[in-house]
């Protein structure tokens, strides 16, 4: 019953687990937490197409599964295409009367590598074709499953196994690809960012995405203690700091209109976020200043868009 309400509090969240405990994610994995919340928000009438990655590996060692909803893994770069097929298959079978008509939400679930790098083409195609599905990117900012290699979603300065901090290079030398902006540029009805440190906000956004007809894109920051070299018990705190420092602002783009989910009159210094993570240990004051400057600038631009209520 509560699932039909438009207002959510933690207590209104179902106690049912659709992403069951017993999966093999690392301690403190905020991606597993994000997926658990996503599954709770969606309920049972859902089909999930997962890309290759941590969530696929930890949840599906044959003959076990952590999924209590229909779940499908095909390959790394094609979650959006597989979800397109699922959505189309259901649509045509219901139209032809071979399946009873009911609302089934189709989800594509992929990490940042499966989204911003190898899966970008399939994602763009699916958004352009206008399938009624939700694409969820759980972004832990590197290829964690294969051992912390950099992706185009890895933030500037972060040390990974393929962007190591060395004597002449200071970790990742490129800036994080802005996936939500790329998704929004497809003029789809709904784009949002979320973080499991803000569970109610996350659940609300998933429900909103599910209720909207047409493609929706959710970008969820997922703290990865293993890859970020952070203490597992700090995952929730780090997610909050990412938002409060302005590094990962929470916002929605509804039919092109930007809206900040939480606004901060004053952002916290990014040092508070950075010093809790081993991947940034090598950063000099100068580099931290450089990052801070960029974060402030991008946050201001976002606020401006939200104030104007327009897309670009």
């Amino acid at each position: 019953m509560t699932e039909k309400l438009n207002v959510f509090a933690v207590r209104t969240l179902t106690q049912k687990e659709y992403f069951a405990p017993g999966h093999r994610a690392c301690q403190g994995c905020a991606e597993a937490l994000a997926v658990r919340l996503v599954a709770k928000a969606l309920g049972r009438n859902v089909i999930i197409a997962s890309a290759t990655g941590c969530m696929e590996v930890v949840s599906s060692p044959i003959p076990f599964t952590a999924w209590r909803v229909p779940w499908f893994h095909v390959a790394f770069e094609n979650a959006a295409a597989v979800a397109s097929g699922i959505e189309s298959g259901l649509k045509v079978l219901m139209r032809k009367g071979r399946l009873p008509r009911k609302k089934i939400v189709t989800i594509a679930l992929a990490g940042d590598g499966g989204t911003a790098d190898i899966g970008l083409q399939a994602l763009s195609g699916a958004l352009e074709r206008g399938h009624d599905f939700i694409y969820i990117c759980t972004d832990n900012e590197a290829y964690m499953n294969t051992g912390i290699q950099r992706s185009s979603s890895t933030p500037f300065g972060a040390s990974t196994t393929t962007s190591p901090a060395g004597k002449v290079k200071m970790g990742q030398i490129t800036w994080k690809k802005n996936m939500p902006a790329i998704a929004a540029a497809h003029n789809i009805p709904y784009v949002a960012t979320a973080c499991p440190s803000y569970p109610i906000d996350l659940v609300e956004k998933v429900k909103k995405a599910a209720s909207i007809e047409g493609p929706a894109y959710l970008h969820i920051l997922s703290v990865c203690p293993t890859g970020w070299r952070s203490a597992p018990e700090l995952s929730i705190k780090l997610g909050r700091l990412a938002v409060e420092t302005g590094i990962f602002p929470l916002y929605e783009v509804e039919h092109g209109k930007y809206h900040l989910s939480i606004d901060f009159p004053r952002l916290r210094p990014i040092k508070e976020y950075i010093r809790l993570q081993g991947r940034f240990r090598h950063l000099t004051e100068e580099m931290i200043g450089q990052i801070e400057e960029r974060v402030r600038k991008e946050y201001a631009e976002l606020k401006e868009k939200a104030a104007k209520g327009v897309a670009r």
């Binding site: 009438n45 089909i47 696929e56 599906s60 044959i62 076990f64 599964t65 499908f72 399946l99």
Partner: peptide, 14 residues
């Protein structure tokens, strides 16, 4: 793939 009879397809094989 249908919610009325959930199955997992495409798991990892050790």
């Amino acid at each position: 793939l249908h919610p009325d009879r959930p199955v997992s397809m495409g798991g990892i094989a050790l």
